[in-house]
Amino acid sequence: MDFDPLASLRQAGNPVDLLSDAQRDVLAQLTEDEVAVLNSVKLRLDAVADAEVEGHSTAIKLA
């Protein structure tokens, strides 16, 4: 089976369907290694965003 960059990006949670046709065409030409880099960056960005949200929801109790 051939590699499908858009499917791989989509499966990782990248919102490729919100992009323009021209932008999707560019992403559709990415190699497996390029997609792996994008997905890795997304995971790291998501981890930071999750930590920021958790930090905002932490309540500080003063005595």
Rank of each mutant, 00 (worst) to 15 (best):
D4H: 13
A28C: 02
D25E: 15
A28L: 01
E32W: 01
T31D: 12
L38K: 00
L9Y: 09
R10T: 08
D46A: 09
A59D: 13
A28V: 02
V37K: 04
V26D: 07
L18S: 11
G55C: 06
A7Y: 05
D46H: 04
F3T: 11
T58Y: 07
T31E: 11
D17S: 10
M1N: 09
A49C: 05
D50Q: 15
L62S: 12
S40G: 13
M1S: 09
V16I: 14
A59G: 09
L6R: 01
D4M: 06
P5K: 05
H56I: 15
E54R: 06
V53N: 07
R24H: 03
E32I: 05
V35P: 00
Q23N: 08
A7C: 03
E34M: 03
K42Q: 07
N14T: 13
H56D: 15
D50I: 13
L18N: 12
T31V: 06
D46T: 10
V26A: 06
V35D: 02
S40A: 05
E52M: 11
G13F: 11
Q11N: 08
A51D: 14
K61T: 14
I60P: 00
S20L: 07
Q11M: 05
D25N: 15
N39E: 11
A63E: 15
S8H: 10
A49S: 10
E52L: 14
S8D: 13
E54I: 03
D2Y: 12
L62E: 15
V53R: 14
A49K: 10
V37H: 01
A49W: 06
L30T: 04
